[in-house]
Design a protein around this nucleic acid. Sequence first.
DNA 1: GCGCCAACAGTACCA
DNA 2: ACTGGTACTGTTGGCGCG
Length: 802
Amino acid sequence: MSGEADAKQSEKCRFWLLDVNHEPRDGKPEIWMWGVDDHGRRVLVIDRNFAPYFYLVLGAQETPETVLERVRRKQAELPSVEGFELTVRRFFGQPVYAIKVLCRNPDLVPELAEALSGVVGVERCLEGDVRYSMRYLVDNDVSPCGWLETEVAEEDGSGIQVDRVLVAKSAPKRIQMETTPKLRVLSFHAVYHASRGTPKPDRDPVLVVATVTDRGERKQFVAEGADDTFVLASFVRYVRQYNPDVVVGFETNRLHWQYLAARAKRLGVDFSVDRVGMLPHTSVYGHVSVTGRTSVDVLDLADELPEVKVKTVENLADYLGVKELGKQTVIDETEYASYWDNPSKRSELVKFAKERAECISGVFNAMFNYEAELSRLVGLPLDHVVKAAVGFRTEWYMIREAFRIGELIPERTERPYIPYVGGIVLSPKPGIHENVANLDFKSMYPSIMVEKNVSPDTYLQPTEPEPPQGVNIAPEVGHRFRKEPPGFYRRILTSLLAARGNVRQKMMNLSPRSEEYRLLDARQRAIKVITNAVYGYAGWIGARWFRKPVAEAAAAWGRETISTSIELAKQMGLDVIYGDTDSIFVKYDPQKVEALCRTIEERLGLEMKPDKINKLILFTEAKKRYCGLLPDGSLDMVGLEAVRGDWANVAKDTQEKVLELVLKQRSPDKAVRFVREHIGRIRKQKVSFRDLIIWKTLTKPAEQYEVNAPHVQAAKMLMKEGWELAVGDKVGYVVTHGAGKLYERVKPYVFASYGEVDTEYYVSNQVVPAALRILSLFGVDEKALLEAETPKQSRTLADFVT
DNA sequence: GCGCCAACAGTACCA
DNA sequence: ACTGGTACTGTTGGCGCG
């Protein structure tokens, strides 16, 4: 073929990578990259030129050529081997010889690895567990949610729902482009007839599927009588017609894809909602994939928002300020059937589904930038990064760095769990303090790990001699780390810290309201999360690069750091009121605090600065619980019942109000009066029923509990009525009248009426303890809150402030 | 058999 | 399925008592 002819056929394609998967075609593997090109066309770029591979690592004493020869001799028995390459890599920093085994078929890699690991001289087999499509992205240094460029030729693409199917003629290259193409996003919510507990696709029809697109088109597909064939068929038709890049739902991974597909199968409806005419299928991390589209479950996004305690779509939307939710009626799943079965209420159910689809869309939009940045940073496709836990995100970032520096990726192994000592927490000085600065170390653990070169590859075993470059020795635990060369973790953390610094620098010249600022903010947040996770990752027994002394040493240096800071503060005459891990609370004397921070930076090489200045701050006897009054007049409630998800709202709200009256109005007396009045309202059932619900998470299957915990009892009652509960679900219950143990008196809130609620329980076990947590500092006791008012000396806060 | 209490189980928080 | 440190509620079962 002449060069000219070739040039006519091939062209450059620039595309934003949405998703990647691999397809075996005639026994040969293909990488399929789904994207949107710079003309807004949907493209599928296929690469047929990437061989899967793994490494055979040789023992240190072996002659590499000899082992290679032994391995070669086996090739005849192993037809799927494409070839061998002798290479030098590093494993935990040590140079090793490794044979790179190139294969024809990624699915046969584990089998081949097994067959070849037995060859004499082969010490271990590595990287056979890196998925082929991820291997491709890593080796080409390209990321999803970013732009790529490659030489392509167009190919016939019948049966595939994109504008162009292209074959890559060159390896893709990452290109610098900051824009995000306009993605087609379809959000949906489905409602099923829940006739007897959790709906079953074999029994219960789909009542409504409500959709909303990024263009604002809203549709509701509603069952006619008991016939839902139409609902499914028209939903599928609509998805195919709109052809979204992203499909968003709530509980899609756990529920909807499986349910809709099963229901469609039963009704004989073709449920191929993807871009290749196949059904949704289960993929890694428990994610359900829709080939060619990105399927996002808003429930997974909720994991990023720990402030939202009960993860309903509405709570998420409300927290993100997505929508005016004031007037929206939320219909509980347990009520779907009764709404549907009552013709006059059906339209309310449809309206609810429609509004929920809109909330889902809103939550996705609010979080898209962040998730896309995370995807680009760690290199996992958007739908996978959303589902992946922090440890895996961090690890994928590391895998990319490892590839760049020729470091082999360790295998995942099972190890025993042995805990180690962590950070220091001081007992606070109880009471109310005026003008207290909260001094924080900036990225303490990452900075220590960089500074001391703490890393799995710089760690010296106790038996190893000290290298000429010298070592850093961790206090208390004595672990030694080479000062040079820079360790794997140091490289990773240095580049992350620098990258975040650059982004933050750029942000300073932008208006916080600009789109670019918001994008960069999402980027710096993503970088921060990964940076801060590296220490935790190092101590995670599931980590590929786990070395217990690494985490243990970082923690020990952390303790030394905070102890030294406390000492210095005291020496400078600063009153230390509290401290936890990487922060100290001192009486705010601006000059002294500034001097302290300067000294610490000089002496320890770590940056410490005032984070918050509290006008007032309240501590009880307990660690990890306090409330500050900030200069802007807001309360910073930490650890207290008011910020916990497992106390009834009546108690949380009471405590918050008490804190306001005490700290803002400086009146414990008013707070006592408020609590007494509020108790009166509770006894008269004047508070909302919803505010009496206690939510607790089911952390294991209900049968496996050793004690009769109230929320488990409530869970069992739900299960008895046919409701399926999974580990991780929150159970909402109320306490009712009756005799015996608490667990004998609880009911799932959906089964209880206000009349049966034991308000006295809420008074004495929720509201009073939450209020006394604060008010006992002022000599208030239970009696003062519960018994008839006795005239007493009125006190002001001044009597208590120190 | 009853009340008391320490140990334990369980959950959710802070850094 | 990132770490350890911590507070706190409610259950359980042993103990002394009568």
